[in-house]
């Protein structure tokens, strides 16, 4: 109401009950909008996904023989007991070529994966040794689930020296 040059000093006397009500009411409204904003943000964060799960179960460890096992449903290789692993040790590597997404084939006699599409080759560490593939094959975390079956988590890419010991 008054000119801003003659603004009065603040005092508790002048902070009336009216002002208090206005202030608290205003804060409550702001809090409400805050809740609405938080809620809206949380709302946009999906809880369920309509896509193949990235973390999935495969069979129990004993089901897979020593060597390189191809698991077709999930397109992964399960390596057990070879190339620096003991019989009770497991590793999982993606079976999707990093070049164009074909499925590389395990060639036992040469100890390497060969992609049938454009000839990329990956050694036992998943590292490209020939062909156009831009990146090594990723290794995934594999653990033992509560029910004793192996659980692969593709969200967790690990280094080639990762191994699961049972």
């Amino acid at each position: 109401m008054s000119d801003h040059t003659v603004e009065p000093e603040f005092s508790y006397d002048q902070f009336s009950r009216r002002d208090f009500f206005t202030l608290v009411g205003g804060v409550a409204m702001a809090g409400t909008f805050g809740a609405a904003l938080v809620g809206s943000f949380r709302y946009m964060w999906p809880n369920v996904l309509y896509e193949p799960p990235k973390r999935y179960k495969i069979g129990p460890p004993a089901e897979y023989p020593v060597g390189v096992n191809f698991i077709a449903d999930q397109r992964i290789f399960l390596v057990r007991g070879v190339y620096g692993l003991r019989d009770n040790e497991y590793r999982v590597v993606s079976a999707i070529c990093t070049h164009m997404g074909c499925t590389p084939k395990w060639v036992q006699k040469d100890d390497r994966w060969e992609c049938p599409c454009h000839g990329s080759q990956f050694n036992t560490l998943g590292v490209k040794v020939a062909g156009p593939a831009p990146r090594p094959l990723p290794w995934y975390e594999v653990t033992v689930g509560n029910d004793g079956r192996l659980v692969v988590d593709q969200n967790k890419v690990v280094t080639a020296d990762y191994k699961l010991s049972i």
Partner: peptide, 23 residues
């Protein structure tokens, strides 16, 4: 009006944050 504003403001506040908890 101000007590009414305060009252409704608090009720709506409680309702919204109640939803956050209830969720």
């Amino acid at each position: 009006w101000r007590p009414l504003f305060l009252f409704t403001g608090l009720v709506v506040f409680a309702l919204f944050w109640g939803q956050v908890v209830k969720d």
